[in-house]
Amino acid sequence: MNNIVTKQTFILADELATIALGKQLADIVKIELKQGIIVFLNGDLGAGKTTLTRGFVQGMGHVGNVKSPTYTLVEPYDLQDWQVYHFDLYRLADAEELEYMGIRDYFSSHCCSFIEWPEKGQGMLPKADMTIDLAYLDEQRQVSLQANTPLGELLLSFLVK
């Protein structure tokens, strides 16, 4: 019998709980995985994608503002031992634009990439280790995490312990 967890859903009470989940993911990456991850973020505008990413970036050691890269496509965070990239592809007109910005350079073992609106980059993005869906649930948020690779499964296994 296979005990691998590939999907988990949480209810988050508020913005602070969303940030806390991001920080928890960062702790798992730094302490347990010790390698970068690729995360696709799905959800309506305002559902908490940037808030979750903010928690992750802060959890990885960034001090300061974490803003949405809506107009720049990517916001890089150069941290002591890590590179964290927050992509927002909402305004991307054509996935081939990613090739011109050197998209392949953003994915390596010491890089963590959180990608909002990943469907806009279809065909140019590598497979995500994890897909996170955020949805409104009255004043709360429902967050579903789907592991897509063995690394994603490992991350999720530490999260649900």
Rank of each mutant, 00 (worst) to 15 (best):
E96Q: 13
Y136T: 00
G22P: 07
I4N: 10
N3E: 14
L92S: 03
A47C: 10
Q24H: 12
G59Q: 10
E32V: 10
L33N: 10
I28H: 10
E139G: 00
I28C: 12
F158T: 02
A95N: 03
Y106W: 06
I19Y: 01
I38P: 00
E119W: 03
L155V: 11
M60A: 13
T9Q: 14
L92M: 03
G61H: 09
T18C: 11
L137E: 07
Y100F: 15
D44F: 03
R141I: 03
G123H: 04
S109I: 08
C112N: 07
A128T: 02
I11L: 15
L159M: 14
D27I: 05
W82D: 08
T70L: 06
R104A: 15
Y106H: 03
A47N: 09
Y71M: 07
Q83P: 00
K7A: 14
A93F: 01
Y71W: 09
D138H: 03
A20I: 02
L41M: 07
Q146L: 13
W117C: 06
H62I: 11
L16T: 09
V57S: 10
T53C: 09
Q122I: 09
Y77C: 10
P118T: 05
P150S: 07
K23P: 05
A13F: 06
L12N: 12
H62E: 13
G59P: 12
P118W: 05
L45M: 11
D133M: 00
Q80R: 11
W82P: 04
L159E: 11
I103Y: 04
C112W: 01
G46H: 08
K7L: 13
D133W: 01
P118C: 04
G48E: 08
D78F: 13
S113I: 03
I115F: 02
T149M: 02
